[in-house]
Design a protein around this nucleic acid. Structure first.
Lengths: 114, 114
DNA sequence: TTTAATTACATAAGAATCTTATGTATATTT
DNA sequence: AAATATACATAAGATTCTTATGTAATTAAA
């Protein structure tokens, strides 16, 4: 399990990316999907997820559809066109950041080269 | 310049790794060094750096040496043995997290394979 | 030469992002 | 029948950062 410290900042991008590739999904499903894809190393907490989804909807990045499953309401989220554009930008930004991180992690000043 | 959102959580690891490879360094120097290595994409703010260095010293990860440069006091930081061990663990953890991120970023459910 | 920019430290207030705790209620498995 | 899983939601609190502010010496520019 990755430390929650590292997850800070990347969680929103992860959620949007998974929605972009996986399509229409509800909250609980998203948590399971991310857990599965990450090989059980990323466990999104509900306290982080739901407020984030609500904020993204308010910002026009997501739209929702409610469905009755038995006696329960299930809320499906999907990206709006604006949300898809934003996701692409976020993914690109995260990829660039990862490249920078790798440069730092591979930087070894005191290593003598042959 | 990477968004500060992404930097959250990785900053401490970056600082410790740069101290591990670069050796004894003072705060201002650290900021410049990270800026340089990152190709001007990571700018550590002083408001984040100094409290972090103080906390790491208190935790026994760093030790300090003061030097007079003209009329000014300069504080050099370096990793303690404990800090070096901690840095290795943090770097390993970050590398693992990056691998997980890449899996998610490369995950394309709807892509049809040839 | 005096003004501005850079070097070098530090802290406080506030924003953002997450965890933990709590609550409600249905559905399924043991 | 009880426990676990499903499915939503919010509030309080912790952590981690930014922005703002302060001090003061040094160096470069006007």
């Amino acid at each position: 399990m990755h430390s929650s410290e590292l997850l800070k900042g990347t969680l929103k991008t992860i959620v949007m990316k998974v929605l972009k590739e996986g399509g229409r999904m509800y909250g609980y499903e998203l948590v399971q999907r991310v857990k599965e894809i990450s090989g059980d190393t990323i466990q999104i907490t509900e306290g982080a997820l739901y407020p984030m989804l609500h904020a993204l909807e308010l910002a026009g990045e997501l739209k929702t559809e409610k469905e009755m499953i038995g006696k329960r309401v299930r809320k499906y989220y999907s990206l709006t066109p604006q949300g898809k554009t934003e996701t692409k930008a976020r993914v690109k930004e995260l990829e660039a950041f990862i490249e920078t991180l790798k440069i730092i992690l591979e930087w070894e000043k005191n290593k003598v080269h042959a």
